[in-house]
Structure formats: structure tokens, C-alpha cells
């Protein structure tokens, strides 16, 4: 056990799984970097933010494959390799680039098993960065997990910390279905204790990061940390929050969400993806349908506005959910008074 960054935790998961299973391969744009360059360097980048650094050195060019900047062909190749005996981990760099290769994910990899009557296994992992907070603007900041969650056949994982990232990525690699693994780019330097040994965190089981009696907060990825901070501040004011990190949006641990809402009667959902048809609306629908009678106040959603992600810091800050916005939503739901109809 030692302190590891989100970046190191992911790197270690990849390294340990590649050591364990020779069919695990890595591919993507500059996952090594430097191939063919005039400097003759190898592993020049190790991924655009250094997440895969050093893997080329250990596993060589047959298992760490740099690709041309052609997402459709290599994401499709990863899908094709997955149904023919390899366990590819393909890096899409920014999840926004899915626009260039959605067919290969949505119409091919996700549907093989069902279309082929259960005869295919597609052990594919697609890693990608998501999220705003880096002034990366509209085409490099989106949180597109609802898009993937919408597609049957895909599993969608959003780790909220280094510990979670390592265990969930190992599960993703060992999984026999296509998994979209989304890494919040603002979190790569976040550190915490992470076991040195490999471990797998199962999909579809939410993690409770805080327990309280008054309000249930469901948050995803980086939002979990914000929700925790809001919960800690609110606890000092005597408001107890349960914070649920679902870990995976597909499968979704609806049982835990419903149980917690039954206990608290109040629900705030924190989701940094665009607000229409996102996880917040999905969970709000679930709770409205299955736990209507438990609710003591309207469900509140802490979500960005329905705009592209802006560039300027002042606008991006306005755009994003924040600890303060979560606190305000929790406070509002606590202050709600049912008015009797006369």
C-alpha cells in the first residue's frame, strides 16, 4: 500500500494486467509516442497526459501499439481484435473524439453479442478522458457517459478516486463485455493510498462515501469528491448526507439508490454531463417511478446548463457543478415544505 496518483493507479492496473495476461494489448494515439520521429525516441509521451508511460518499455511494440490519428479504424480494430482472441485496451484520448468512431462502438462492439445470438464475447476496454475544468473548451471537455450508458451492450465505468480507478480498470480488463472507462482529466494528480497488489472492484455495486440520515446525494466521478466536501460542510450544520458513488452507470446499482432514498426521503443528483437525458434525469426517473412515496421533497439536480462547455475560466466555473451549488441544493431540499392542497 502506498500513496499513488490517479494516473499511477491506472498505469499500475494496466501494467499488472498486461503481466498477468499476454492477450492484453494497448493501442491508441501516442500511447507510446515518438515512433518514426527524427529524435529516434521511444515512449516519448506514454499517452498525451503520461498515463501509459513506461508500458512500451516493458511490453514492446507488439503489445503497446501507437496508431495513426484515425479513431474509426483503430477503435474498430480493437473491437475486431476483441472478438478474435485479444483483450485490447484502446485509448480514445478525449472522449469528445467518439464522434469520429461512434459506429464502431455503438453499432459494432456493443451489439455483436446480441446480434449474433450470444455467440460473441467482446472483451474490449475503451479508455478516454472526460470532464471540464481545464479550460479545454467545447470539444475537449464533455462528460459523455450518458451517451454510452444509453447503448445496450456497453458497460460504463467512472472511477472517482485512484483506489477506485485501479480496481475498476482491472475489472474492466477482465470483463468479457465492451467497457467504456472514463477518466476525469482533472483528477490525474489526485493521490490516495492504493494497494500495490492487483484487485478487482465489481461493477454494478455503488460505494457509499458518506452516510447520513437527511439527504441522499448521488454523484459521479469527480463530482463524488465535491459531494463529499459538501456533505462534510453540511454535517457541521447538522445536516446528514449519504453520498452514493455508483461507480458504473451501466450497470447501475439502482437498489442502493432506492434504499438510501427510502431512508432519507430527499435526493440530490450531481452530474457534470449536459443536463438533458443525462444520469441525473435517469436516476430522477427511477426514483420517481420506484420510490415516489418515500420522497419528502422534490428531487434536485446539480447539473451544468444546456450549453457547450465554455472556454474562459469565469464561464467554465459558472458552468460546472461546485461544492457550493451542491450545498445550496441540499439546503433547498431540506427547506422544502409540503403545501397541502385545499
Amino acid at each position: 500500500m502506498s500513496k499513488k496518483s490517479f494516473r499511477q493507479a491506472i498505469n499500475e492496473a494496466l501494467r499488472q494486467e498486461m503481466r498477468r495476461d499476454p492477450t492484453v494489448i494497448l493501442m491508441g494515439e501516442d500511447v507510446a509516442g515518438g515512433r518514426g520521429g527524427s529524435a529516434g525516441t521511444q515512449d516519448a509521451w506514454g499517452g498525451v497526459l503520461g498515463v501509459t508511460k513506461g508500458l512500451y518499455e516493458e511490453f514492446g511494440e507488439t503489445r503497446v501499439l501507437d496508431t495513426p490519428i484515425t479513431e474509426a479504424s483503430y477503435i474498430g480494430a480493437a473491437a475486431g481484435a476483441a472478438v478474435t482472441g485479444l483483450r485490447p485496451v484502446a485509448e480514445l484520448m478525449f472522449v469528445d473524439f467518439v464522434g469520429c468512431c461512434l459506429d464502431q462502438i455503438m453499432n459494432q462492439a456493443a451489439k455483436f453479442r446480441y446480434m449474433f445470438g450470444g455467440k460473441a464475447r467482446t472483451p474490449l476496454v475503451i479508455r478516454a478522458m472526460y470532464g471540464a475544468g481545464f479550460n479545454a473548451a467545447a470539444q475537449h471537455s464533455q462528460a459523455l457517459y450518458p451517451l454510452f450508458t444509453h447503448i445496450p451492450g456497453l458497460k460504463v465505468v467512472i472511477p472517482s478516486s485512484p483506489y477506485e480507478a485501479k480496481g475498476l480498470l482491472i475489472s474492466a480488463i477482465r470483463d468479457d463485455d465492451p467497457v467504456i472507462f472514463l477518466e476525469n482529466k482533472v483528477m490525474y494528480d489526485v493521490e490516495e493510498d492504493v494497494p500495490d497488489e492487483p484487485y478487482a472492484i465489481p461493477f454494478g455495486e455503488a460505494n457509499l462515501t458518506r452516510e447520513g440520515d437527511d439527504v441522499t446525494i448521488v454523484a459521479f466521478g469527480r463530482m463524488v469528491g465535491m459531494a463529499n466536501e459538501a456533505a462534510d460542510r453540511l454535517a457541521k450544520k447538522g445536516i446528514g448526507c449519504t453520498v452514493i458513488d455508483p461507480r458504473t452507470t451501466s450497470p447501475l446499482d439502482s437498489e442502493t439508490i432506492l434504499d438510501c432514498v427510502a431512508d432519507t426521503g430527499r435526493l440530490v443528483i450531481v452530474d457534470e454531463s449536459s443536463p438533458r437525458c443525462n444520469m441525473a434525469t435517469d436516476i430522477a426517473a427511477l426514483v420517481a417511478e420506484e420510490a415516489f412515496d418515500s420522497l419528502r421533497a422534490p428531487i434536485r439536480r446539480v447539473v451544468p446548463p444546456h450549453t457547450p462547455v465554455p472556454f474562459a475560466t469565469v464561464l467554465e466555473t459558472l458552468y460546472m457543478p461546485s461544492v457550493e451549488k451542491i450545498e445550496a441544493a441540499v439546503t433547498a431540499t431540506m427547506n422544502h415544505r409540503v403545501t397541502e392542497k385545499v
Binding site: G76, A79, G80, A81, V83
Partner: peptide, 13 residues
């Protein structure tokens, strides 16, 4: 694209 992947499997394996 799928065939690139299948070919990669043949080559790697």
C-alpha cells in the same frame, strides 16, 4: 476496421 483487428489478432497470436 474490424478486419484490421482480426488481422492484428492473427499477427499477435
Amino acid at each position: 476496421p474490424l478486419i484490421c483487428g482480426a488481422a492484428l489478432s492473427h499477427k499477435t497470436l
